[in-house]
Design a protein around this nucleic acid. Structure first.
Lengths: 157, 157
DNA sequence: GTCTAATTGTTAGCAATACATACAATATCG
DNA sequence: CGATATTGTATGTATTGCTAACAATTAGAC
């Protein structure tokens, strides 16, 4: 019944209006992190029913786009280390969303493939991503979206 | 000796070139998250010696900007819930970077103040943030930085 | 003023990264 | 063949984000 999250009204401590000193608000990285937080929060809400995280959806999506992809390749594309990738793959496998096949070409590698459950879940996830994206993009014109993607890409590429 | 992180060379699985289907690369949220990841990773590297996380620095900074701020107010500004804020404050207090004083005006609130160690650490942190910011901003013109901040603000505000 | 409701801090617990490290199996190359 | 690198795996730790419950305090309704 109690809406905990951010319902808390703030009791302003002093006088400051967030735009005084060598303000934290001038730090680009600060805004990137806040925007990410807002984004991730809305994503999580949107995916409450599907019980999937952003990382998990990304993995399903990439495995679908690249059947037989290896864990290392996945990790590289999503900028994760191998241990973290393992944890995510394990969770998805436990839910029967994907399977590991030993790669015939390279015995060290595990080729990843979506299971039927995973294919269905991905379809639903893409639907939900549509909503989520609409929420994000509602703030921008098409031109601004392209601009934003271009600028952000310079950071992570 | 082994540079684990992202040293893994990728073994391209197939043919795809990342720009075929209803690509994941067209999702704005995806780029926000990758950019955030890259940002956070560099931040963490920059702050290895200081042993501070991004959240912790933000808290120190805000407590310095708003002496006597309450935890709820902090949480609201950084978009965290109360429990998470507690954990962060506890860690910072354990390091003697700040202290809790019961607020004289509202017995429920804890007024936060930096301790001498915290003040010194924040000074060093701001130095490090300068480097970190330079790394981020090196990709952009001044105009683009302002643009980016303006656009990102629309998401988290 | 009193009683009820809301706020604030706190504690405990859980899930999901993110990372380091070490190990085994496999592949590659001199 | 033998040294080295790659890949997956297992373990362990830290941080974050959230829920749920509880006590103390305050604010509001009446």
């Amino acid at each position: 019944m109690i809406k905990d999250k951010f319902a808390d009204a703030i009791a302003p401590v002093g006088h400051t209006d967030d735009d005084d000193v060598g303000a934290i608000n001038e730090i680009l990285g600060f805004h990137i992190r806040l925007a990410h937080g807002a984004c991730l929060r809305h994503f999580t809400e949107t995916f409450t029913d599907l019980d999937l995280t952003q990382k998990q959806v990304s993995v399903l999506w990439l495995v679908d786009d690249h059947p037989g992809i290896a864990q290392t390749d996945l990790a590289q594309r999503l900028r994760m280390d191998r241990a973290t990738t393992m944890a995510i793959i394990n969770r998805l496998q436990a839910k029967h969303f994907l399977r590991r096949d030993r790669s015939p070409k390279d015995g060290r590698k595990q080729a990843l493939f979506l299971e039927p459950d995973g294919i269905e879940m991905l379809a639903r996830a893409k639907q939900a991503i549509g909503e989520h994206e609409a929420w994000v993009k509602s703030r921008f014109s098409d031109k601004e979206v392209r601009q934003l993607i271009e600028l952000l890409s310079r950071i992570h590429e």
